[in-house]
């Protein structure tokens, strides 16, 4: 059917254009504000890859960082809808700009005698820290961008990751250099 194929074409185009976006925003630090943001995503069928919230220096204001997947028109809607929320003070899509972005993970990895040296080497190379040492497990604290975290986890996987806690991304726009 003609309509079917055009719809498929549209669908394909959508998939091609979908990109990861990191949105950072300042919001009122009030009860219910996070629900408004999250409710907007679920209610409108937007996707959340990860989300981080914490107060800023100003205790009245929190920063929310959301990573989402969207094609350009959808991203435009997401931004506009978020800006429309009364409690959203400021918002910025950091994907196209210069930004520092970090994630953090605590990884509890199995440390058998034969693997201990290798684990410590990896920890060293990735500039992580061992924050808890047990007879059979190390707990590693790692920070970095998403690629680094994925690479690290892939290297540790063969030794046996018992449990892992990861944060979503947090990000800040880089201040321009002083002239």
């Amino acid at each position: 059917m003609a309509t079917g194929s055009s719809e498929q074409a549209v669908e394909r185009k959508r998939i091609v254009d979908i990109e990861k976006h990191t949105i950072t925003m300042l919001v009122d630090n009030k009860p219910g504000v996070l629900s408004r943001v999250v409710g907007l995503f679920s209610g409108r069928g937007f996707n959340i890859e990860s989300l981080c919230v914490a107060p800023t220096i100003d205790p009245m204001v929190s920063r929310i960082t959301i990573v989402t997947m969207a094609d350009p028109p959808l991203m435009e809607q997401i931004e506009k809808q978020l800006r429309k929320l009364i409690n959203v003070i400021k918002l910025r899509d950091l994907s196209d700009t210069r930004a520092v972005q970090r994630e953090m993970a605590l990884i509890c990895v199995r440390a058998q005698p034969r693997d201990r040296d290798e684990i410590l080497r990896i920890v060293d190379i990735f500039r992580c820290k061992v924050v808890d040492v047990g007879p059979e497990y190390y707990t590693i604290e790692a920070t970095g961008n998403e690629e680094k975290m994925t690479a690290l986890i892939n290297l540790l996987k063969p030794m046996g990751i018992k449990k892992i806690a990861r944060t979503g991304a947090i990000a800040l726009f880089r201040e321009p250099p002083v002239k």
Binding site: P73, E76, Q77, K80, Q81, K84
Partner: peptide, 8 residues
């Protein structure tokens, strides 16, 4: 007046 209406 509502930017979300535009290009939705």
């Amino acid at each position: 007046i509502d930017p979300t209406s535009i290009r939705k």
